[in-house]
Simulated scan of single mutants.
Amino acid sequence: MHPATQEAAGHENAARVFDPLRPRLTRVAYRMLGSVADAEDVVQEAFIRWLGTDRAAVREPEAFLHRTVTRLCLDQLKSARHRRETYIGPWLPDPIVEEEEVEDVTLPLMLALERLSPLERAAFLLHDVFGQSFDEVAVTIDRDAAACRQLASRARSHVRDARPRFQVEKQRGLEIAEAFFAATRSGDMTALGAMLASDVSSHSDGGGKRPAAMRLIQGARQLLRLHRGLSVMYRKYPSRLVRKGFVNGLPGFVTQEADGELQTTALEIEDGKIVAIYVMRNPDKLKHLH
């Protein structure tokens, strides 16, 4: 067989195994990194490494590729931590918008994962979210099973409060999101105030690329003051509702703002009240939604 033909056949065989696993591998990488672009880069690097591997010697390709992706993510997290420290304003993970609710890793949990060490994060996600045994986790992150159990336990204690305590019913969540959009755009502060918990917080990520609050806004009174001002702007420069759905597992919506850019809003809801609002405005983190 001609070398070029042989290489093409090898590439095709490698892709035949890899491609069905790509969505799950990307999901693992995204949960680790909080960035769609970084997750896709890591998975592509894993594919390049898969091409260069003696694949006949790999008994369990899926386990091998999970290990490869996780280890690449651990390397990536070291530089990501520095980028977070120098980030302009509040940092939020890239928004993933889906029709259905995803309960395994919601946006508040992803923010809690940021406080973990890379190894704690890996042990928690691989065991608690993706269902791997501690023996499998141990091979992946190159620690013994007892150490992995300890890492996951420490992680669990850090993220416990970020787990949803009172899951809002799916349809009710979307109704509240729609009502929130209508009240904020029309300037109906009475309707908006009725939806907010007294200690509601608002997080907006502009990344220094678009105007956004440079710090966390806390409390219903502060938030109503902010939206009273924004509603004046919305009357002059309307925003358009593009899509309703679940943003990183939370009820929310995608809008197109007056500057032509997209924006996502996600609402954390407890006992029928909005307890946190997450707004993504950084265009670099919204590219994949186009």
Score class of each variant (00 low, 15 high):
2 H>Q: 03
5 T>K: 09
7 E>T: 15
8 A>Y: 04
9 A>H: 03
15 A>G: 01
16 R>N: 08
20 P>C: 06
22 R>W: 09
23 P>H: 06
24 R>W: 05
25 L>H: 10
38 D>M: 00
40 E>N: 14
41 D>A: 13
42 V>D: 13
44 Q>W: 01
44 Q>Y: 09
48 I>N: 15
48 I>D: 15
48 I>P: 10
49 R>G: 02
49 R>P: 07
49 R>D: 03
52 G>E: 11
52 G>S: 05
53 T>C: 04
54 D>V: 01
57 A>T: 13
61 P>Y: 04
62 E>Q: 12
63 A>C: 02
63 A>N: 08
64 F>V: 02
69 V>D: 15
69 V>N: 15
72 L>K: 00
72 L>D: 02
76 Q>T: 04
80 A>T: 15
81 R>N: 11
82 H>A: 09
84 R>F: 14
85 E>V: 01
88 I>C: 03
89 G>L: 07
89 G>H: 11
90 P>I: 13
91 W>D: 06
95 P>M: 03
96 I>D: 02
97 V>I: 08
98 E>H: 00
101 E>G: 08
102 V>K: 14
102 V>M: 06
105 V>D: 03
105 V>E: 07
108 P>N: 05
109 L>V: 10
112 A>I: 12
115 R>C: 08
118 P>I: 11
122 A>Y: 06
122 A>E: 02
123 A>I: 09
124 F>P: 10
126 L>Y: 09
131 G>L: 00
134 F>S: 07
134 F>Q: 10
137 V>E: 00
138 A>G: 13
139 V>M: 11
142 D>R: 10
142 D>A: 01
145 A>C: 05
145 A>Y: 00
148 C>L: 00
152 A>S: 12
153 S>Y: 06
157 S>A: 08
157 S>D: 12
158 H>L: 05
161 D>R: 08
161 D>E: 12
161 D>H: 09
167 Q>R: 00
168 V>G: 08
169 E>M: 07
179 A>C: 04
182 A>F: 06
182 A>D: 15
183 A>K: 03
183 A>Q: 03
183 A>N: 02
183 A>G: 10
185 R>I: 14
188 D>L: 08
189 M>K: 09
191 A>D: 12
193 G>M: 05
196 L>A: 14
197 A>H: 15
197 A>Q: 12
197 A>C: 05
213 A>M: 03
214 M>P: 11
220 A>P: 15
223 L>Y: 06
225 R>L: 06
230 L>N: 03
231 S>H: 01
233 M>A: 10
233 M>N: 06
236 K>N: 11
237 Y>F: 02
238 P>W: 04
241 L>Y: 00
242 V>A: 13
244 K>D: 02
245 G>T: 13
246 F>W: 13
246 F>E: 14
254 V>P: 14
259 D>N: 05
262 L>R: 11
263 Q>I: 04
265 T>H: 05
267 L>E: 07
269 I>D: 02
269 I>H: 08
271 D>H: 13
274 I>E: 00
286 L>V: 05
290 H>G: 13
290 H>P: 14
